[in-house]
């Protein structure tokens, strides 16, 4: 009896190895299957529209993703897509995909991203949806941009949702010495950024890896552990494709981020000026939902929480999640806290 059990386990174990070794011979599973159409294009940016299954709300959602990676994580696959969850709930969804910047975009600053892409994109979304108000939702650095945009917006932003969004750059828990030296002006990478124009994707990936996991192999052990689970393997591969899909960063934008946020922490200390307009977070009056993930090593709570005291919004909620940096967008349906918060603030269709 004991021998039979051992035999079974041996077979199962070897089958996991076989599966693990075979994974790399299989083509990559498809990513981003929710139906969409491009409603506006500018330079490399595309404004995607995801029509709802059945329109239930008059306030559409405008998604802004980070500048360091592709927004594929928002729509990995059926059942693993926040966009799919939103359209199934009856929301009109717009996603501003910034595309991959080239050498010619080296002069694109954060101000340009805000006024030439995000602001125009929101106007286009309002024009396309014929809506009177809009919800702006930003992820990670996209959330920082969303907050900055909402502070200067003339457009009617009804709700602002900031997901794992860094706002306070006064301290970086893991690299506090680096943060201190950058603030003092002892470390300056501007010259290096200038010669490259756009910072290569590999540099961006290395920088993020250094902050989170300089050595990163445990995910392969997770894959080996579940190599015989087809659904898990496909999901792992999609996620891995996204997590390795960093994109170059426009030099002027990176320099501005390092100066305005890294050195001067202007979102907290004030004094942020975006093409002559005050980017003070006090200008924000939209209903605010802020989410923070407990196990997020890239954007810890101390970088997120201060936004709650900086805005003028009367209706504001802070949600701490038992999750990692990207967990929220890969859990399938709409997360319960979002399902509870968003619909009643989105003017349901009567």
């Amino acid at each position: 009896m004991a021998n039979l059990e051992k035999d079974d386990r041996f077979k199962k174990d070897s089958s996991k190895w076989e599966h693990f070794l075979n994974i790399w011979k299989q083509p990559l599973p498809e990513i981003g299957m929710t139906a969409r159409e491009a409603v506006w294009k500018k330079n490399k940016s595309v404004l995607w529209y995801y029509p709802p299954v059945e329109k239930k709300y008059n306030v559409p959602i405008f998604l802004i993703y980070s500048l360091v990676n592709k927004p594929t994580i928002l729509d990995l696959a059926p059942g693993e897509s926040i966009i799919e969850a939103l359209v199934n709930e009856g929301f009109q969804v717009y996603l501003l995909d910034f595309g991959i910047p080239g050498y010619e975009d080296s002069g694109t600053s954060i101000d340009d991203y805000l006024t030439d892409y995000i602001e125009k994109g929101v106007q286009r979304a309002l024009r396309h949806s014929k809506a009177l108000e809009i919800t702006v939702m930003g992820f990670c650095l996209g959330g920082t941009l969303a907050a900055m945009y909402t502070a200067i917006a003339d457009e009617p932003v009804k709700n602002l949702i900031l997901s794992v969004t860094p706002i306070d750059f006064s301290g970086m828990p893991t690299f506090d010495q680096w943060a201190a030296e950058i603030k003092k002006g002892n470390v300056n990478f501007d010259e290096l950024i200038d010669v490259y124009g756009t910072v290569p994707a590999d540099f961006i990936q290395a920088g993020i890896r250094l902050t989170t996991s300089p050595l990163y192999f445990s995910h392969y052990l997770s894959l080996l552990n579940k190599a015989d689970d087809k659904a898990y393997v496909e999901r792992w591969r999609r996620f891995n494709t996204w997590s390795n899909g960093h994109i170059p960063f426009a030099g002027a934008a990176l320099k501005q981020l390092m100066e305005d946020l890294g050195r001067k922490n202007k979102l907290v200390n004030g004094g942020l000026n975006i093409k002559g307009r005050s980017g003070d977070l006090q200008n924000i009056t939209a209903n605010l939902l802020v989410t923070c993930s407990m196990h997020d090593r890239l954007v810890p709570e101390e970088m997120i929480r201060p936004v709650m005291d900086l805005v003028s919004s009367r209706d504001k909620k802070y949600q701490l999640l038992d999750a990692g940096h990207a967990t929220m967008t890969e859990t399938g349906g709409l997360p319960p806290y979002l399902k509870k918060w968003l619909p009643k603030r989105s003017d349901p269709v009567k």
């Binding site: 174990d13 996991k16 893991t174 690299f175 506090d176 010495q177 680096w178 030296e181 002892n186 470390v187 250094l210 996991s213 300089p214 050595l215 990163y216 192999f217 445990s218 052990l221 997770s222 080996l224 552990n225």
Partner: peptide, 30 residues
């Protein structure tokens, strides 16, 4: 496999902490 995964994650975390501590020094930054 489960054991290997847990052990690997733990070791990865320990090594990363060491690397980050090593890199987070004034001399290295300069």
């Amino acid at each position: 496999y489960q054991k290997l995964k847990l052990l690997g994650s733990k070791k990865e975390q320990q090594m990363n902490q060491k690397i980050q501590e090593l890199l987070n020094k004034k001399e290295y930054i300069q």
